[in-house]
């Protein structure tokens, strides 16, 4: 069901997770389909994390980090940015579709951007419908 879709979101501790906090403190509304996982820096996002999320049944994955120049470890987000470009191609080739994956930069003060991006992603995935990868992989034989 489109209402049950699950999106795994990775947020870096210093900016994007702060953005989620800002959105929360300001009581901005966004759909509950998102599960946020905090990592210290977006540069810590290993492509294995993203693929594992899809394998375990995520319908979409959203990776967020600091704006360019703001990474607290200097350049983690630049590295993540390059990795994501390869990952879009990989998930497309694996039939998951590049639309189910998204990355963007959200600062700690951008509560508004946080809630808007989440809404955008949830709508996008609802339109695509659930990813049945997990069901497919569980088929025996």
């Amino acid at each position: 069901m489109a209402e049950d879709i699950k999106i795994v979101m990775f947020c870096c501790n210093w900016c994007s997770y702060g953005g989620a906090d800002t959105a929360g403190t300001a009581r901005m509304q966004y759909p509950p389909n998102i599960r946020v996982i905090r990592v210290m820096c977006s540069g810590r996002i290993d492509p294995q994390f993203v693929l594992k999320a899809f394998k375990e049944g995520a319908d979409g994955v959203f990776v967020a980090g600091c704006h360019m120049g703001d990474c607290h470890y200097d350049a983690g987000n630049y590295k993540l940015d390059r990795r994501m470009r390869l990952l879009y191609k990989l998930v497309e080739d694996m039939g998951i579709g590049k639309e189910r994956l998204y990355h963007d930069w959200i600062s700690a003060s951008e509560g508004e951007k946080f809630s808007e991006s989440v809404k955008m992603m949830v709508n996008r995935i609802k339109e695509l419908g659930p990813a049945h990868l997990k069901d497919q992989l569980e088929v025996e034989g």
Binding site: P47, Q48, G69, Y78, R83, L90
Partner: peptide
């Protein structure tokens, strides 16, 4: 996951001398 590890190894350090200016 061998492939994912390589995606990371190749992409992370690609153009590292111009880490912040190379086209991602």
């Amino acid at each position: 996951d061998q492939g994912a590890k390589m995606v990371s190894a190749i992409a992370s350090d690609y153009g590292i001398d111009e880490d912040k200016t190379v086209d991602p």
